[in-house]
Amino acid sequence: MVKKILSVALCAAVLVFIYAPILLLVVYSFTDSNVIGRWEGFSFALYGQLFRNAEIMQILFNTVWLALAAAALSTVLGTAGAIGIFYSRRRVAKPLQAASQIPVINAEIVTAISLALLFSMIALYRTYFSLIVGHMVLCTPFVVLSVLPKLKQMDSNTYEAALDLGATPAQALFKVVVPQIFSGILSGFMLSITLSLDDYIVTAFTKPPMFDTISTYVYNAVRNGTNSSTPALRALSALIFVVMIVILLAVNLRARKPAAKERAK
């Protein structure tokens, strides 16, 4: 009994720790006050300000297109890379896999400055090119890592069978291989999106001077103290928290059922 109470208490305490800051922001996004802790009555004023703030809307847009572009490019490149690695000889596959680990294991700041060194050398420092490549460096290895296991699970005979039945290699690839590893590709894509959305450090070192994502904008607002003069940012955070939590829960609750069945087999 005591054990049970302790267990529940621990879980509850950790959940409070995790969600208290988020809840605080969400609650105070519904009052028109510059300072958290001063309740000025319930209102949607901050949300109004948020959607009328052209700058923040632009940044939201930037963040989303960057994530989509980087994730899409990383997914194509990474999927092809994984297929290539899977069918290559060990001598080729091993070093490629090892190199794929570098951005995964590396500290983000080191990745960021290494790219800064490279791009300043070829006069592409702080351009859209360096930004997208920076995000691709973060994301692509994760795509490879999510696709490779699916390739290993795949029944390798199906590809040969397709060829024997008269498919061209490309047809076999798209109609036989890709569908079988599709779940890996999808999870690589989604992972890329979350990685790109989450990133601050690489973005800060590769972004064009006048370009901001949510991460860089909010961090700068904290540095400059403008987060207290722009309470609309609170509404932005609250909105992102709630939207992300809802999406994640929805995706997960739906995805869990078949997965559980699979495991039961």
């Binding site: 890379g81 069918y87 951005p103």
Partner: peptide
Amino acid sequence: RKQLCIPYALFLILFV
């Protein structure tokens, strides 16, 4: 099929 890893290899060499 093996060729598919060439772009990725180039990418790793250039940017990693």
